[in-house]
Design a protein around this nucleic acid. Structure first.
Length: 665
DNA sequence: CTTACTACAGTTTTT
DNA sequence: CTGTAGTAAG
């Protein structure tokens, strides 16, 4: 692999802490991969002593793929390449004893968290999904500052904070007693462990002798702490980041971590990579113009030596359907003229819902496309439901799973029975499952309820006894016993959706089969591991081999980070969409970085578009073009029509409503 | 206890 | 507009 001077320096700096400030398209992944190979081949590191961390599964997958092209699979498989959360999971699983945990824990996703918090906060907060989300983010933020409920309770200032802190305490108690973890715990527990337990810390420092972190600007406080704790006395690690691509501050990411690093490690080597190998000069110029409107931590001067390239087009469209049609039409003609492949094209958007209309138009025109959403199959209700069954089988204390499966399919156990059950269980501090087998409870239930409940318990016990079988067989038995297909048949009217759902189930069970097969070298995954992998979305999509099939790529701007495409369309360039309503008042910088990420994905051609008219929730809006369009070098743009910049007093009603809502909240 | 209807809220991004 | 959650009738 050819490397330039800076890249070579970045690869060769293996003694002590090393920070690489890598601009978009400067060969960041290439450097990480080269460095890993260098460590193995030239520096005597064993591959199982190297860990590379990323933030998204997609990035981890990409890195795995690229590294297995370079070295043999047996070696590349030993390298830990995973997300922070997946590494946390690995640490927790191997430190169960030290942590005093049982192996059959459940992992809560956001929906589970909300469900639980709703229950907990019932007394304090009005039923309001918004306040639940706020509460959740408070708890998450506390956890990412390594604060326990007790510590938080001492710190609280306002009344509301006090309520939130109480909820945090209850929430935490609940999780611990039911043997449940949430996403934050996957970082929290290992960090706390390493802080308090030196031998555990040394154990892992010996295991991970060289640490690399991609997208370092996205680390939050606790992740930074974890990196510190994992690095041994020599501080041999490499962090790669770009503050202009920090787009996860809503998840607690702190780009300032880049600055802190210099204070914490005075010997830090800082290497800048400013040569962009991806985009035409014009595209890069546009990106630089845009991002110049943001404050900067480090000065950076990104340059390209490629052709100047063709002009950037801004297409003004009538409405969202017209917009989608224009994009698709452009792809068709471009494809024909330039003899490209379909996967040369990417359509990027701010929010997921924007892809629906595109999907419709693409389908209509028989253009192959692939939507990378955050794993669609696993978010389908029929699959989530099955996962709940599996979760309950592994951890019968998982009350959320219990509630989700108890009456689906209907077992004649309705809200009356469940209310009695849950209140009794709470009063007696038992899990719902333990409560259902308790003789005391039966005194307050009707005979019919008792019978129905006993029938269920008897059955689920028989399934629990199957856990020694393969996870695949467990699932198979559940699906058969609850006559799931029949139930779906009965409850789905549309025959297409019906087949789709039934098909999803077989895909799902095939996945489990594949996961068991794929790991034959190590000990096979158990059911608990499989479920947590699903919850973390840490699965490879085998249903479509995206690399072989030629498809137009559709994804959110967030999902596009780290990828590149010859031709990029960014749609919905409107005030309210990009920048998003919720950010217009206070966080435009991050939206700008988002636009920056989108622009820098493009290698050769870039298209923007926006609608003059848009329908949302049945309302008609007349959005203004995004301010970002005006921040670009106008000489490099071609607008499809002359725009009259309207009086911006004419803020549309919806955005006004949203802004007001936000301020009052 | 289930079904069917009505109202209502909601779309930011990910592990 | 669409999907969900809560309510009233069966």
């Amino acid at each position: 692999m050819y490397l330039n001077i800076n890249q070579t320096e970045a690869v060769n700096s293996i003694k002590g802490p090393c920070l690489i400030l890598a601009g978009a398209g400067s060969g960041k992944t290439k450097v990480i991969i080269s460095k890993i190979i260098y460590l193995i081949n030239n520096c005597g590191y064993q591959s199982n002593h190297i860990a590379a961390l990323t933030f998204t599964n997609k990035a981890a997958q990409e890195m795995k793929n690229r590294i297995s092209e370079q070295i043999c699979t047996t070696e590349s498989k030993k390298i830990i390449i995973s997300t922070f959360h997946a590494l946390g999971m690995k640490i927790i699983r191997s430190e169960l004893k030290t942590l005093g945990m049982k192996s059959n824990f459940s992992l809560f996703d956001e929906q589970d968290q909300i469900m639980l918090l709703k229950e907990i906060s019932l007394k304090y907060l009005k039923e309001n999904k918004n306040s639940l989300k706020t509460l959740l983010s408070f708890i998450s933020n506390w956890k990412s500052k390594l604060l326990t409920p007790m510590q938080v309770l001492k710190l609280v200032k306002s009344k509301l904070e006090r309520i939130f802190a109480d909820c945090y305490k209850k929430y935490d108690n609940y999780l611990r007693t039911c043997n449940i973890l949430d996403f934050d715990d996957l970082i929290f527990l290992p960090t706390l462990l390493f802080k308090n337990n030196l031998s555990a810390r040394i154990r892992w420092q010996k295991k991970i002798r060289y640490l690399l972190v991609d997208e370092y600007q996205d680390t939050n406080e606790i992740q930074y702490e974890l990196i510190k704790l994992l690095s041994n006395s020599d501080n041999n690690f490499t962090l790669v980041g770009d503050d202009d691509q920090s787009i996860y501050s809503w998840r607690g990411a702190r780009p300032q971590n880049i600055l802190l690093l210099k204070e914490d490690y005075p010997t830090l080597q800082v290497i800048k990579m400013e040569h962009n190998y991806r985009s035409s000069q014009r595209i890069l110029k546009a990106a630089n113009f845009l991002i110049a409107n943001n404050p900067h931590i480090f000065k950076k001067n990104l340059f390209s030596e490629l052709d100047y390239g063709s002009k950037i087009k801004v297409s003004i469209t009538e409405n969202e359907e017209h917009e989608a049609k224009k994009v698709v039409k452009k792809i068709i003609s471009h494809h024909r003229i330039h003899h490209t492949t379909y996967n040369d094209y990417a359509i990027l958007y701010r929010s997921n819902y924007q892809c629906r209309i595109l999907e419709k138009i693409l389908l209509h025109n028989h253009i192959p496309y692939h939507i990378s959403s955050s794993f669609s199959l696993l978010s389908r209700p029929e699959i989530k439901h099955l996962i709940s069954y599996l979760r309950f089988v592994v951890n019968p204390n998982d009350n959320n799973a219990f509630l989700k499966i108890i009456n689906l399919p209907s077992r004649q156990i309705g809200s009356v029975t469940l209310n009695k059950l849950t209140t009794w269980a709470k009063k007696n501090k038992k899990s719902f499952f333990d409560a259902s087998i308790d003789i005391e409870l039966k005194k307050i239930l009707t005979v019919r309820s008792i019978n129905n409940l006993e029938k269920f318990i008897f059955w689920i016990q028989s399934i629990i006894n199957l856990v020694e079988l393969t996870p695949y067989d467990v699932l198979d038995n559940i699906v058969k016993d609850i006559k799931y297909e029949k139930w779906i048949y009965k409850n789905t009217i549309d025959p297409n959706i019906r087949t789709c759902k039934i098909n999803n189930i077989s895909i799902f069970s095939k996945w489990i089969k594949d996961m068991l097969k794929g790991n034959q070298t190590d000990t096979p995954l158990n059911l608990s591991q499989i479920i947590t992998k699903f919850t973390l979305r840490d699965v490879i999509d085998n249903t479509v081999d995206n690399h072989d099939i030629d498809k137009v790529q559709l994804m959110t701007l967030h999902a596009s980070k780290g990828l590149e495409f010859p031709v990029v369309f960014i749609i919905g360039m409107e005030e309210g969409i990009l920048p998003h309503y919720s950010a217009i008042a206070d966080n435009v910088d991050e939206e700008r970085r988002l636009a920056y990420v989108g622009i820098t994905r493009a290698k050769k051609e870039l298209f923007f578009s926006y609608c003059k008219k848009r329908y949302q929730y049945g309302e008609t809006l007349y959005p203004q073009p995004s301010r970002f369009l005006f921040e670009l070098p106008q000489n490099d743009l071609i607008w499809t029509e002359n725009i009259q910049i309207k009086n911006t007093n004419q803020l549309n009603i919806l955005s006004l409503k949203k802004i007001l809502k936000k301020q009052f909240f």
